[in-house]
Write a protein that binds this DNA or RNA. Structure first.
Length: 500
RNA sequence: GGUCGGAUGGCCGAGCGGCUAGGCACGGGUCUGCAAAACCCUUUACAGCGGUUCGAAUCCGCUUCCGACCUCCA
């Protein structure tokens, strides 16, 4: 494919990417609800869309990338009678709701930085856009597609569905949904979780309706004035209001996890069509979930692995810590639309693979070139990488091509193949544009501290002397002891090199 | 119960009508004081049963398992 194609959930097809305005791309990503520390599931989306963003920039586009922070409105438990997630956590931790939001926003962004994810162009918060949300709710009211009950406002899905299709994105049929509501609450598989607020459920005209504005009880810590009384915005409206504010009523790409497809994104489309008279986005991109033992990783299932636990190796499933770049590499080794199963073995394999790639990368600049034409070429790799990226961001294939490149680099390094200056320059370009470029990988750099370097040199000199005197026992002792601490020693014709 | 996806070698994961990725692990070799690294070689998998086709892991049907969504989730 000579140009970028993306799988659009809206059409369920691979589509040629063509921006609405030539040369510019607007992207909106549903960010986290900040009520807990970031886990592995929170990391996949940002990586996937970071690669998309970098690739678009690589292709010369001007990209505005908006990723929100949801710090109000998201309800805990089932149905709209649940408690606000932020509020609940605030009570648990005896903190201001804003303090909770700030704490976990910081934690989230710290992980983003470690993963080498470019910061959003704009990072709007739901609480900072209450007015915009109220205005949008009013517009929906004015259009006659929302109704007020007891100080709350609900979107009238049934009425909307008469002239529109509530289900364009998720492929759902409203009638099925209706019967689904019955079946789910009476069927054999229905398991009621926490307390279901029946009053709130009943005040909606229809189970499919969703809240635009919720009335706040007096003790509710987060509430704002509105013409419907004191309350707080519903979950879906914040993304609609903020995306429209910063990207316009119609923008290029809306992304998020597959689990947000319904009802969140479906609701966003309905809200956008009613309030802004336009479907919000041209391309809807959804990444799949990270699973653990075949099941979705989710906070509610209690099988989550925190990012921090991965980085320090403290989780029971892990034998050791893994670096942020190992995680990034691990994520990119799978296609974004498939599930990715997490395990210590899978992480270990990714770590070794990434180390192998780094070793080859480190050889590039010192590769000896031959005059004229060398036998090593990379044109097929350059082409292959472009084709793979253009085919719905097939990063696993890109990485496979990169490993073929590593093989050739090693061959040249071993003197078994020859490279010309021209091709060497191309290889350096590939490293900078692909690996460090749109894949966003950076070398794990643990061996650069000066003091460490000096100390290592002393040990290596000792070992060299021991070897000179044929004292292999001492020499191996030094090497093995270092190895035990994670230092890898390599004897090469040019001298001994080490890495951590 | 409804809707939508999956089942690929020891493991992770691409491919989606013929040329049958890649990584990790395993085995053999070159190199080396021994290692490590690197390189080379070896190992033909696509849930089961039918069907379409000159040809199917790839298309169609049935069966069996698994998952996601339908209720908060990245």
């Amino acid at each position: 494919m000579s140009s970028l194609h993306l799988y659009n959930t809206l059409s369920r097809k691979l589509e040629l990417f063509q921006p609405i305005t030539e040369g510019h791309v607007g992207i909106y990503i549903c960010g986290p609800t900040v009520y807990g520390p970031p886990h592995l599931g929170h990391v996949r989306g940002p990586i996937v869309f970071d690669v998309l963003r970098r690739y678009l920039i690589h292709n010369g586009y001007n990209v505005r990338f908006v990723r929100n922070i949801t710090d109000v409105g998201h309800l805990v438990g089932d149905f709209d009678g649940g408690e606000d997630k932020l509020l609940k956590q605030a009570k648990v931790e005896k903190l201001e709701p804003m303090e909770v939001a700030q704490t976990y926003t910081n934690a989230y962004n710290a992980v983003m930085d470690k993963m080498n994810i470019i910061k959003p162009s704009i990072e709007p918060r739901a609480t900072g856009h209450i007015i915009e949300q109220i205005e949008m709710i009013q517009a929906i009211m004015d259009a006659g597609l929302a109704y007020t009950i007891n100080g709350s406002v609900y979107f009238d899905v049934i009425a909307y569905n008469t002239n529109n299709n509530y289900g364009v994105l998720s492929g759902r049929i409203l009638e099925d949904l209706q019967s689904g509501h019955d079946a789910i609450s009476s069927g054999p598989n229905f398991v009621p979780s926490q307390g279901r607020a029946l009053e709130s459920q009943n005040e909606k005209r229809n189970p499919s309706d969703f809240a635009l504005w919720k009335k706040a009880s007096p003790e509710h810590l987060m509430q704002w004035n509105s013409s419907w009384g004191k309350g707080f915005p519903g979950w879906h409206i914040e993304c609609s209001a903020m995306s429209a504010k910063y990207l316009g009523a119609y923008f290029d790409i809306h992304g998020g996890g597959l689990d947000l497809l319904f009802p969140h994104h479906e609701a966003e489309i309905a809200q956008g069509i009613v309030a802004h008279k336009h479907t919000p986005a041209k391309y809807w991109i959804h990444h799949n979930m990270i699973t653990i033992a075949g099941q979705k990783m989710a906070k509610s299932l209690g099988n989550g692995v925190l990012a921090e636990q991965l980085f320090n190796g403290s989780h029971a499933l892990l034998d050791q810590p893994y670096s942020p770049m190992t995680l990034r590499f691990f994520v990119l080794q799978a296609h974004y639309r498939g599930t990715l199963d997490f395990s210590n073995n899978a992480l270990l394999a990714a770590q070794k693979a990434w180390q192998r790639m780094q070793s080859a990368i480190n050889l590039i600049d010192n590769l000896k070139v031959v005059d004229g034409k060398g036998s090593m070429e990379v044109d097929d790799i350059v082409l292959g990488i472009r084709e793979s990226m253009n085919d719905d961001l097939n990063t696993p294939q890109v990485i496979a091509h990169l490993f073929e490149l590593c093989r050739r680099i090693n061959l040249v390094n071993d003197g078994k193949d020859q490279i010309s200056l021209r091709v060497k320059t191309l290889v350096q370009q590939l490293r900078d544009d692909v690996c460090f470029g749109f894949l966003g990988l950076i070398l794990d750099d643990k061996s650069n501290s000066d003091g460490l370097n000096d100390a290592m040199q002393i040990l290596l000199d000792l070992r060299k002397n021991a070897k000179k005197e044929n004292n292999w026992v001492l020499g191996d002792q030094i090497r093995d002891a270092l190895k035990e601490k994670g230092f890898e020693i390599k004897d090469t014709p040019e001298g001994t090199v080490w890495k951590l």
